[in-house]
Design a protein around this nucleic acid. Structure first.
Lengths: 301, 301
DNA sequence: GAGCGGCTATACGGTTTCGTATGACGGATG
DNA sequence: CATCCGTCATACGAAACCGTATAGCCGCTC
């Protein structure tokens, strides 16, 4: 076990290997070469006195120790990226990059016009969209601004409630024309093509009671992607769950059994307190919050 | 503005210069040489497209941009240090380094026997004590365990209330023998040597009402160090504020005007949730919490 | 089973980076 | 005013680092 602190560069290679699963892959993504990355990992292992990967011809598998260190290395990467964003935004005016995280549906269906207007007003602004249902950690600086469906509990976060997004069952009128409109939950469950999820996520587990009999084996189309589910509804595949506000935009999409299934989701926009005085983040926060507010108002009408 | 992401190594040098105020000083603390650190700073400035320091013969002064980037660089350093602690603790049993932050008084007067017993039970354990009144950020991994006088509000923190530490006015019996024991606040304020703070900290501002007329210009000895104040009380310099439990240990220390001034401070031990499953942190957390609990019980008797 | 594409490991030459040595400059001290 | 100690800047040789090239191994495919 060498006492010398390993160079911080080594963590980049470590993280690359962790993500890619091979020295060669990491080298490609890092813009290095395979021998270099191999040397880095070797040096890191020696500096830490640990075995980080089990070598094999088809790649490197992380050891338990490597998995324990992974979150810290990820924090390093996220912090370095955040530092770069701050550096780019130095200077007068609203400029630099803002990294926004949101769900796929919000990011694809709702945010684009909001961000387009924002960008038009501030040409110096660049947006990074991280679309994932995984809650990226604002504390870890994985994003500057987050759109969330749960109330942010960290009090170092600046959070604003923008309203309630309602989820409901919808179908295309073509589908309903062919198969009829179910008038009860029982009708829905028998003889209708239900669009639902594939794997059960933590979010869905929380809604298990509300969803009732809408379990995995009842679905005629299973897709984890909310976007795919939405597209299936629009294509007339069957009946599925989507945001009421989105369905309203297409007159041919009809809400089904509104009283039987209604999932109101409180929606929040959050930002780290430290970014309060950052022009780029303040402006983006306001734009996103206001834009989402308008979207939600439109849904209610 | 070069687009290439700067090497993470550069941030170490950047941080070193920021802390030391000069290339030479940073080089000394980093185990490098002055030209190397200079090159690093230069490279970082070019990569970021920013001017980070204003050069002069007596050192480098950080620019506004550098100050904006500083907290991120500090997070990088704290995370790298935390990663090393985790790496060292890999393997079976309770081993590795635990970094504990506490106030100076707690760290000097209360923690040592607790930590000694802990260490005796777990020889593989090493302790890092960060004694500061500044609340080191557990979220930023600046420490593994924190002893605090305020309720931790972050819900990613595992916090346990260990009781209430009481602060009161105390003096050495020698002093009281010479100057008499004040029987009222008015007597205390006129003709007594009061030991107090020098600069007003955020903590003290919060206590302004409780402290009443105990303002800066009323003090016959001003010291920001709580340890120095305690030492002055013990030396018979005058009357000052210290923990009741500490004064109890020395029979010659007498509490003064207990009804006029009593500051009960809720005391907490906190740890990041992620460290819950870390043997070294679990053990240290329990030991510190239990040890502080015993100390507080003794104070109450 | 031969061939192909993926991976790791190793050897070698070039480039980058580092450290040493030195010069120049400014403030504090006598 | 001269001296000394601190700082940064620059030049040069050495050491460390990286990339290229190659060998070896495995799994998949035709």
């Amino acid at each position: 076990m060498t006492d010398a602190e390993p160079g911080w560069e080594l963590y980049r290679s470590f993280l690359g290997v962790l993500k890619e699963g091979s020295l060669s892959g990491a080298a490609r993504s890092l813009g290095l070469t395979q021998p270099t990355v191999g040397r880095h990992v070797e040096a890191l292992e020696q500096a830490l006195g640990l075995s980080l990967f089990t070598r094999s011809q088809l790649g490197l598998a992380p050891t338990e120790a490597a998995r324990a260190l992974a979150p810290y290395a990820e924090t390093l990467a996220a912090t370095a990226a955040a530092l770069l964003r701050v550096a780019q935004s130095q200077g007068d005016g609203v400029r630099g990059t803002v990294r926004i995280t949101a769900s796929e549906v919000i990011g694809v269906e709702v945010l684009p016009p909001i961000l387009a207007a924002l960008r038009a007003e501030h040409p110096g602004l660049r947006i990074e969209l991280a679309l994932t249902n995984r809650v990226e950690d604002l504390l870890k600086r994985e994003a500057d601004i987050a759109v969330r469906m749960v109330r942010p509990s960290q009090d170092v976060l600046l959070a604003r409630r923008v309203g309630t997004i309602e989820l409901g069952l919808h179908a295309h009128e073509d589908y309903l024309g062919r198969h009829g409109t179910p008038r009860s939950f029982a009708e829905l469950m028998s003889g209708h093509a239900i669009i639902g999820f594939d794997r059960e996520t933590a979010f869905l587990r929380g809604l298990r009671k509300e969803l009732g009999p809408l379990r995995r084996d009842a679905f005629a189309l299973r897709a984890d992607s909310d976007l795919a589910q939405l597209a299936a509804i629009r294509a007339g595949y069957g009946i599925g769950i989507c945001q009421v506000g989105l369905a309203r935009r297409d007159a041919r999409l009809v809400r089904v059994l509104p009283k039987a299934l209604s999932l109101p989701l409180d929606t929040w926009v959050a930002m780290h307190m430290d970014l309060r005085d950052s022009p780029r983040c303040r402006v983006a926060f306001e734009a996103v919050a206001e834009g989402l507010g308008r979207y939600i108002e439109g849904q209610a009408s």
